[in-house]
């Protein structure tokens, strides 16, 4: 701050607090709804302060699910976790390897491969859903973890990021390693991976959220309830709410759907911000 003007500083705080309230309001209301019972959630006006049914609702949602046909949310959380981890770890692994090849090796068609990967930037899943669905169906991957994650795993963004990071690694480290007798894979494991580990962790945070929040794709390829992810289940709950509005349970599920990524973002804020600004710039 350049000069000391208490009035301006006060204004700044006021605006920020207002902003925080707007940002937090939907989340707060959801939390509150998840702590009341069914009856209270049908009375107008809805409560703005938490009630005492949090654990009861949590228990019901986790192990029994919402409504008579609903499956337990606990299982969906597990599916979401597996999918998010597969996507994040998968993307990072294949991108690390391909970026390593492109930056550290001279080989035929190197630039061709690079452009092939680059093109995937231009093909978000939303614009190629039908034919991708057909491919996954032909491969018999519907209703499987592989089907959930594989089509989302190729990522130009991650490859570009690692390419950028690798290009920033001093050449002398490779030379020193070669004089020390390390071959390509040994250099990759012993030197390159350890010194880029914060970049990897930062990207992992972003990709975990990306994977967890996938919606359209799981919606299309899972028909078996045991493969549902929690994010896609929200939609079905909202539809069910038209007939039997069990808002306390729906909102508890919603809370569970957003809790893990929020925890990751807030808990690993530094890595998250690093990952975000690095992948996009």
């Amino acid at each position: 701050m350049v000069e000391n003007r208490p009035y301006v500083t006060f204004m700044a705080h006021a605006v920020l607090i207002f902003g925080v309230i707007i940002v937090a309001l939907p989340i707060w209301v959801t939390f509150v709804a998840a702590t009341h019972d069914e009856l209270r959630m049908t009375q107008i006006p809805l409560p703005l302060l938490p009630g005492g049914h949090f654990f009861e609702n949590l228990n019901e949602v986790l192990f029994e699910g919402v409504g008579s046909r609903g499956s337990p949310v606990g299982m969906m959380l597990l599916n979401s976790l597996i999918m998010a981890l597969l996507i994040a770890v998968g993307k990072i692994s294949i991108s690390l390897l391909s970026a390593f090849a492109i930056v550290y090796f001279r080989f035929p068609f190197r630039m061709g491969f690079f452009w092939l990967i680059f093109i995937t930037l231009m093909l978000p899943v939303e614009v190629r859903i039908l034919p991708t669905f057909a491919v996954v169906a032909d491969l018999g991957l519907l209703d499987s973890y592989m089907g959930l994650s594989l089509p989302l795993i190729a990522s130009a963004t991650a490859t570009f990021l690692f390419r950028q990071v690798f290009l920033g690694v001093p050449d002398e480290l490779l030379e020193a390693a070669r004089i020390d007798g390390a071959g390509p894979m040994r250099f990759f494991w012993d030197i390159l991976l350890p010194i880029t580990r914060t970049n990897i962790a930062a990207l992992f945070v972003i990709l975990f959220i990306y994977g967890w929040n996938q919606y359209l794709w799981p919606l299309l390829i899972t028909t078996d309830q045991s493969m549902y992810t929690v994010v896609m289940a929200i939609k079905q709950l909202l539809e069910a709410a038209e007939e039997t509005p069990q808002w306390h349970l729906i909102m508890m599920t919603t809370l569970l759907a957003m809790a893990p990524p929020i925890a990751v973002v807030v808990g690993m804020q530094k890595l998250f911000v690093k990952g975000l600004t690095e992948t996009e710039k």
Binding site: S93, I94, S95, L97, S98, F100, A101, I102, V103, Y104, F105, R106, F107, P108, R110, F113, L116, I117, I119, T120, L123, R128, T132, V135, V136, L150, P151, I153, A154, T159, F166, L167, D171, L174, E175, P184, M185
Partner: peptide
């Protein structure tokens, strides 16, 4: 890189997984 490894099968194996997935699913 100014300093890099020479040609071998290895780089093809390294880009392989990503290229395969890109071709099949993209």
């Amino acid at each position: 890189k100014r300093v890099h490894f020479g040609p071998s099968v290895l780089p093809f194996l390294l880009v392989g997984p990503q290229i395969l997935i890109t071709l099949i699913f993209f």
